[in-house]
Design a protein around this nucleic acid. Structure first.
Lengths: 227, 227
DNA sequence: CTGATTATTATCAAATTGTTAACTAAACAA
DNA sequence: TTGTTTAGTTAACAATTTGATAATAATCAG
């Protein structure tokens, strides 16, 4: 729901595992925090407010199960995904983990790629369940189509429907030049006939409202988002 | 909004597997349909409209991957969960499956209990992402769907049924814009026909009763809760 | 410099929503 | 049942916002 990078907390008592996983998740663009035992995991969870927590089942102080149970009893973490890791490939703990409110369960040895694609799949599914589509973010400019909201460096700008749709169309494929015809058929549809100047006027309004030149004119061709 | 039994389609070419899985899933209260190959899976999916499809990767006619790809390219199945089954415990196909839009990936031999708990966990997570039946609290405003009660800074406000449902629908997914059509189908259902002004009037009543502007109009699009 | 393309501005028409009041249906108590 | 209250819907109109166009100015490419 937040238009920020996805935050993941990794809790495991084996430094090697933490290192490998966090390396790969960072490379995949996630924002990472780590913890070495169950108690630390809970503390960090409260401060860091991650979107997803990866918990080793076997940890000192509090096991992953205990942490999971704690998090699930606290409404602050209603929307936090919990992925449990275990060395055992044992059915009972697998089921137990899911019943305690875990969202996924991965057995060691862990393949970072598999872990990343599982987490990605979970987020994808949740976003689509919540009716979200893709949020565009560049240089402090955020365009959120589910909320019809545009903000620049934290300040909100209210765009009209057509303005917003036009901006989103261009921004969703940053750098690509859209011909006037493409824009017309995408935003207005193939059967509606409007003049060419109409596009210009909307582009102008977007530029004026945001106060930045995020849309570049490609003379004789069309427009592109470049920011 | 409908609390009908959850429908699951199982597609596998091994009759034994189908039998075992469908037996356990039925026992767990799901509504089951089956298919023996990829093509049949697609046909049945269209007719049966399952909430979840369990696909064996290795199937005649069309593989599970192909079926998955097909389903994901068809917006009718946007909200359908896809669980892939495979005999291979091979990382590449695991990742491939998730990238094709699968939601979970389970390796054979399959434990029915594990399968059920994974499916249950997925549904649980999706429901909560979609804003299911939880008390909403923001800035002193509390909306309790179990009791149909609303209070603002400790003071109770009595909303009528439709007013309450409308407020809750929006508030459960704060920030998200709901199209008028979405609102109509969620609150009134797909077969009831009411005029557009009806929504406005209820929105107005909510705003008047609470005395705050917790619902924002997004002109030409719909409404959103923002408070 | 010149012709073509785009930017700007103001204006008007159209679409959308807000508001009120009246009417109908449902729920409830006497 | 009857009368009364409450909720839900609709219609009519007002207010607002948005979108399209035209006319003019500015800009760019050759």
């Amino acid at each position: 729901m937040a238009d920020a990078p996805i935050k993941i907390l990794i809790a495991d008592d084996e430094p090697d595992i933490i290192e490998i996983i966090s390396f790969h998740l960072m490379k995949a663009g996630f924002d990472i925090a780590t913890a070495r035992d169950g108690s630390e995991a809970i503390e960090k969870a409260k401060l860091f407010e991650p979107d997803c927590i990866i918990l080793d089942v076997m940890m000192p102080k509090r096991t992953g199960f205990e942490v999971c149970e704690y998090l699930r009893s606290n409404s602050q973490f209603d929307k936090t995904l919990i992925v449990l890791l275990t060395a055992l490939n044992d059915e009972a703990s697998h089921i137990k983990g899911l019943e305690l409110g875990g969202d996924d369960f991965v057995s060691k040895p862990i393949s970072p790629k598999v872990l990343i694609s599982r987490i990605t799949a979970l987020f994808r599914r949740i976003q689509s369940a919540a009716g979200d589509s893709k949020i565009v973010t560049t240089n402090g400019l955020t365009i959120n189509p589910a909320q019809y909201r545009t903000s620049l460096n934290g300040v909100q700008y209210i765009l009209a429907k057509k303005e917003f749709e036009l901006l989103y169309l261009l921004a969703a494929q940053k750098g690509r030049v859209f011909l006037r015809n493409e824009i017309l058929s995408q935003i207005w549809g193939n059967d509606v006939i409007v003049g060419d100047r109409t596009i210009d006027v909307h582009i102008r309004k977007i530029r004026a409202k945001l106060g930045i030149n995020c849309i570049t004119t490609v003379k004789g061709v069309g427009y592109k988002f470049d920011y």
